[in-house]
């Protein structure tokens, strides 16, 4: 039995896509689904489970970008404001009669542009990522309110609501989430540049000696993150009938939490997109489960925060033991 388990983890390692943390989180998701379903059978319905997945989708898409940023040894706390700005751009353009695909593309491009500014400031002006993105957070949030004057964007054309529609019986956001996770996952696993992100986050000096330019990597991860936040904004904006001017407030926390719970180490150099997806799912699941278990939703954030702390403590202890 023991040897079998040993071989199993060996196999996981060789697959690489599943490191230990991912397996643990996946198991936690299954166990939780099972237990909550026992307590309240309504939980285990297709509608509800799909709903959880849809709720997670835009977080998970951004978490894929955040994974790249954190693995490279940086952080981006401007993603919440970025989401608001990109969602507003998509909404405003759509309302003014711009073809919907172009409105969506514009949102994604805007994300990429903001990411490029962040990246340039981190990589070439050498300002710490936390300061850059803190400043960017304020700039975008302020700029958004300046432009929208706090008004909500309503009366959007029917076509706009991409996230409310389904393809082959599965809601569109879920398709996007799966596609992004697979593509980014494959990129980070199989592309040389994807591997360079890990190298720079693990030991920037060694990476430099191996011919990798850390500045290019930083630039790249911030641009990618921006593009993915733009995409997340499209999913988010096209889900409800109105886009609020304070959209995305606190979003950065949800995204970073998802990644960290999924095993992306805040110290850089390790973590996977699948982990970030599973982490985001677990957090959403806890949210929905508490409703089904009739736990006061107001305790939810404390539970989610506790989960973050727990995973971080495990990470710290694990690193210390193996150091």
């Amino acid at each position: 039995m023991a040897t079998q388990a040993g071989r199993l983890t060996q196999a996981h390692r060789q697959r690489g896509l599943f490191a230990q943390q991912e397996a643990v989180i996946a198991a936690a998701i299954l166990v939780m689904t099972f237990v909550v379903s026992l307590a309240n059978p309504d939980f285990f319905s297709a509608t509800n489970l799909l709903d959880i997945a849809v709720n997670t989708a835009y977080i998970a898409v951004a978490a894929a970008g955040m994974t790249m940023v954190i693995v490279s040894g940086n952080i981006d706390i401007s993603v919440g404001s970025m989401l608001g700005v990109c969602a507003t751009i998509a909404g405003e353009l759509a309302r003014n009669g711009t073809p919907i695909p172009i409105a969506f593309l514009a949102a994604v491009a805007a994300g990429g542009l903001i990411g490029a500014i962040n990246g340039a400031l981190v990589a070439y002006a050498r300002i710490p990522a936390i300061v850059v993105t803190l400043g960017m957070l304020s700039i975008l949030r302020g700029g958004l309110i300046l432009v929208t004057q706090g008004r909500w964007i309503e009366s959007l054309p029917e076509e706009f609501f991409f996230s409310q529609r389904s393809t082959l019986g599965v809601p569109n956001p879920i398709w996007v989430m799966i596609a992004v996770t697979i593509l980014v996952g494959l990129f980070m696993k199989y592309h040389r540049f994807g591997r360079a992100i890990y190298a720079v986050g693990g030991n920037a000096e060694a990476a430099r000696l191996a011919g990798i330019d850390p500045r290019r990597v930083y630039m790249f991860v911030f641009v990618m993150n921006g593009l993915l936040v733009g995409l997340a904004a499209v999913l988010y904006a096209s889900r409800f009938t109105a886009i609020q001017s304070n959209a995305g407030q606190g979003f950065e926390l949800a995204v970073i939490s998802g990644a960290v719970v999924g095993g992306v180490s805040i110290l850089g150099g390790t973590g996977t997109v699948i982990g970030a997806l599973l982490g985001s799912l677990l957090i959403s699941l806890i949210g929905t489960a508490s409703i089904f278990l009739k736990v006061s939703p107001f305790w939810l954030q404390a539970v989610q925060g506790g989960l973050i702390l727990l995973t971080v403590l495990v990470d710290v202890v694990r690193r210390r033991r193996r150091a």
């Binding site: 954030q301 404390a302 925060g305 973050i308 702390l309």
Partner: peptide
């Protein structure tokens, strides 16, 4: 970051 969420919770 974790206690930010916990205390708010």
């Amino acid at each position: 970051l974790a206690t930010l969420a916990i205390y708010r919770g």
